[in-house]
Write a protein that binds this DNA or RNA. Structure first.
Length: 496
RNA sequence: GGGCUGGUAGCUCAAUGGUAGAGCAGUUGCCUUUUAAGCAAUUGGUUCCGGGUUCGAAUCCCGGCCGGCCCA
């Protein structure tokens, strides 16, 4: 024994908690070896309470301690589980002097405990568990962020998402809603006889879209692979193979910038339906989104309206959705009925008149599309099917029968964002090859020869569609950034 | 990649060239129906990192690291 006084660790919450753990272990109890057999989640437990029948129904619940209001001989605390918080009431005269002291001194905010007790209603009307026994099943050695302001540091929210989920109820709700959205989409498609499939992430040709891929290397085969930038060409092979309605909800990787709207890996739903076309896809997406809003988002007023975070407007998914041709939108925005017969020089000056910077190296369709994406798309807040895009924008769709310069497609635009492009899928192998080879500018895709071979075996006519799940979640949850709907968004490696 | 902007106690934030503070959390007491519980006392700092200017730097300057917003 030494005479030196014990070190003052009262300011170091980590050290204080470690000391409490060490003391428990010295007393023969190790929380990390303990467990609890729960009977209910928090909301289920509260639902069991019968008005006027205090201290009758017994439950065992478990969760993380998130509020801690200790008084002399009785205390209220809250634990939180997957379903939310539930209040617990600890009394010295119920637990006994010794256990009450363990509760008061041994437990900290953030600890995970299990309790058994009976339901009652407090005088302020909150259904609460009066605790008969409790067990610590995990000691939190680090303190929780502050209870009132929550966790505000954006970097820590993303790097330590688990803290954000514990502390910030809106984050918890938003990210849970994402899970429900994906689940709803699966069930919606399955009830319409769509089959979910999984196609490779590693490909020797990254096709189906125009984007820079991530590259990796397979050691045993001694070849380079690319992470997929779309699932389109694989899913169309499934149509060739006789899976007439298929979909994949898959992670897509694009080696491009990181921004409010872009994460290097993101989630895309792609759907293909044989014997349908782009008009069939309109019905499909409209049904999918209206049922999503009705069954998952559930607007309080029973409408199909949601608040658009960026503009403050209501987006109304009820009624007919606007349908408008790409060329008509361009003619309207430029005020030039003859826009598409203008020379490149005239298009450049037309774009500049609208305040756009134009790179003279661009192809004409790229100049036009700059007008679309900068001046038109952001104004399309209500659900809008923009149809009949210039054929240069996508080589994988069928040419419009009465206009050989456009394709039979739509881009569903909501809240100023492209949410879902859909096509009548090109199934003529010769036209497909020609269209691939004619690609130019930033739209140029890698040519997947094996896909062309598959088309030569015969692909049924089909409608296909892609839905950016992250963007859909931004829209439906009122988020401001893609990082708010992705659990662990990409950041530069850091020290946290 | 460029412009703007931020990094201070575990968390949320003050301090604009002159002794680094507050609230919550922590610690010690009191308190048997609380709701950001209350009361009293109290601990806690590599001011992101490295240089520079200055009698003196959280603050001004340069470089770096990690974020945010806008643009490409």
């Amino acid at each position: 024994m030494s005479d030196t006084p014990p070190l003052d660790i009262s300011h170091d919450q980590h050290a204080v908690r470690r000391a409490k753990l060490a003391e428990m272990r010295a007393g023969g109890f190790d929380p990390f070896r303990a467990n609890v057999a729960t009977t209910h989640f928090s909301a289920e437990a509260k639902a069991l309470y019968v008005d006027g029948q205090d201290n009758v129904v017994s439950v065992t619940v478990a969760g993380r301690l998130v509020t801690f209001r200790v008084q002399g001989g009785s205390s209220f605390v809250k634990i939180q589980d997957q379903q939310g918080p539930i209040q617990l009431y600890f009394r010295k005269d119920v637990l006994g002097e010794e256990r009450y002291l363990v509760f008061k001194k041994g437990l900290d905010l953030g600890d995970i405990i299990g309790v058994t007790g009976v339901l009652f209603k407090t005088k302020t009307g909150e259904i609460t568990v009066r605790v008969d026994s409790f067990v610590l099943v995990s000691k939190a050695l680090r303190p929780l962020p502050e209870k009132w302001h929550g966790l505000a540091d954006a970097e820590q929210i993303y790097r330590q998402r688990y803290l954000d989920l514990i502390i910030n109820a809106e984050s918890r709700h938003r990210l849970m809603t994402r899970s429900k959205i994906v689940s709803h989409i699966r069930r919606f498609l399955e009830t319409q006889s769509f089959i979910e499939v999984e196609t490779p992430v590693l490909e020797s040709t990254a096709g189906g879209a125009a984007a820079r891929p991530f590259k990796t290397h397979h050691n045993a085969l001694g070849v380079d692979f690319y992470l997929r930038i779309a699932t389109e060409l694989r899913l169309k092979r499934m149509l060739v193979g006789g899976f007439d309605r298929v979909f994949e909800i898959g992670r897509i990787f694009r080696n491009e910038g990181v921004s409010r709207r872009h994460n290097p890996e993101f989630t895309m739903l792609e759907v293909y339906q044989a014997y349908s076309d782009y008009r069939g896809m309109m019905t499909l997406i409209k049904d999918m989104l209206t049922t999503l809003i009705r069954d998952v988002i559930k607007p309080a007023d029973g409408s199909l309206k949601i608040k658009h975070a960026a503009s403050g407007q209501d987006i109304d998914f009820g009624g007919e959705w606007r349908e408008v041709k790409y060329k008509d939108l361009i003619r309207e925005a430029t005020g030039d009925a003859e826009w598409f017969s203008r020379s490149k020089a005239e298009k450049i000056s037309g774009a500049e008149k609208l305040g756009l910077g134009v790179n003279p190296a661009w192809e004409e369709f790229e100049i036009t599309n700059e007008i679309f994406s900068k001046k038109i798309e952001p104004t399309l807040i209500q659900p809008t099917f923009v149809t009949h895009l210039p054929k240069e924008l996508c080589p994988l769709a069928k040419i419009t029968p009465d206009d050989p310069t456009t394709i039979d497609v739509f881009e569903l635009t909501i809240g100023g964002m492209e949410v879902a492009p859909a096509y009548s899928e090109q199934n003529d192998p010769d036209v497909q090859r020609t269209m691939f080879e004619a690609q130019a500018g930033e739209e140029k895709q890698n040519i997947d020869q094996d896909f062309l071979l598959a088309l030569e075996h015969g692909m049924p006519p089909a409608g296909g569609m892609g839905v950016g799940i992250d963007r859909l979640c931004i829209l439906l949850t009122g988020a401001e950034s893609i990082r708010d709907v992705i659990l662990f968004p990409q950041l530069r490696p850091g020290s946290a």
